[in-house]
């Protein structure tokens, strides 16, 4: 079965896709650090930071609907966190919206700040993962001295996700093909628990077989990979643009 909803756009051939993974990882990291480090009551200046990810999505031809969906999937946790944080400040603060000034409660500002920072960092992360094949990301991480064992675990995990989607899809199809009516909450819950159990057992089976396949090809616990790509001029140019953009924005707005 073909799955393309996880890494649907990573195989594109735009200029953004061709940038070295290491440069993109470092740029995302830098962007995240700068955004997270911004004052906790600032709202309007943060919006200017959206220009970066927005430009990347446009150049890389990533649909905004796709980005929005990614952000929405991860949002419940952050919204809960933002709401919890908003109780810590009950003072009123002055906020400038261009020529207008408003008095807003500190708690609301913190809440909005966390949510906007989340949208910005999530957009940057989506820009990274949607324009970089997973293998290139792993390669980039490896070159940045992330432990090789972790890289291999991520590589196998990535493969497992698709295999598990296949297994789960088969179980669900088989269930819906024979499920002619609603059997009541208790019965349905029992069936679904049994399905989850079977999926887990299947995943264990898969892991055992993959382990055998790895041993058959001489795997002895030591990770060996091919690393051959070099940083090119356009990668350096991209890194420079990102740095200049962040420095200029920070200097102008604060």
């Amino acid at each position: 079965m073909h799955h393309n909803y996880i890494d649907r756009y990573s195989d594109g051939d735009t200029i953004i896709h061709s940038i070295d993974a290491r440069v993109k990882i470092l740029s995302t990291l830098l962007f995240t650090v700068v955004v997270v480090g911004l004052p906790r009551y600032s709202i309007v200046p943060l919006i200017w930071f959206m220009i970066g990810p927005f430009t990347i999505f446009t150049l890389a031809k990533i649909p905004f609907k796709f980005v929005l969906r990614r952000i929405l999937i991860a949002s419940p946790f952050i919204i809960t966190l933002a709401v919890c944080y908003s109780f810590i400040d009950s003072d009123t603060r002055q906020v400038n919206f261009g020529p207008w000034q408003m008095q807003i409660k500190g708690s609301i500002l913190i809440c909005a700040n966390i949510i906007i920072k989340f949208i910005l960092t999530m957009s940057a992360l989506t820009a990274l993962t949607a324009t970089t094949p997973f293998s290139s990301l792993l390669y980039g991480l490896e070159k940045m001295y992330v432990p090789r064992l972790l890289i291999l675990q991520l590589a196998v995990l990535y493969r497992y996700i698709f295999l598990l989607i296949d297994v789960s899809g088969r179980y669900l199809r088989s269930y819906s093909a024979r499920s002619l009516r609603y059997l009541g909450f208790r019965r349905e819950a029992t069936i679904r628990s049994a399905m989850i159990g079977s999926i887990l057992i299947s995943s264990l089976d898969i892991s055992e077989r993959v382990n055998l396949a790895m041993i058959a090809r001489g795997f002895d616990g030591k990770i060996r990979t091919l690393s051959q790509e070099k940083i090119r001029g356009k990668d350096l140019l991209f890194a420079t643009i990102v740095c200049v953009y962040l420095v200029v924005l920070k200097a102008i707005l604060w």
Partner: peptide, 24 residues
């Protein structure tokens, strides 16, 4: 192996093919 999915465990085909020779 019987199921090629068990044999292809790396994220990219080329990485999978190089896995054995690298271990050699």
């Amino acid at each position: 192996f019987q199921n090629p999915n068990d044999q292809l465990f790396m994220p990219r085909l080329f990485d999978d093919v190089t896995f054995g020779p690298l271990n050699m």
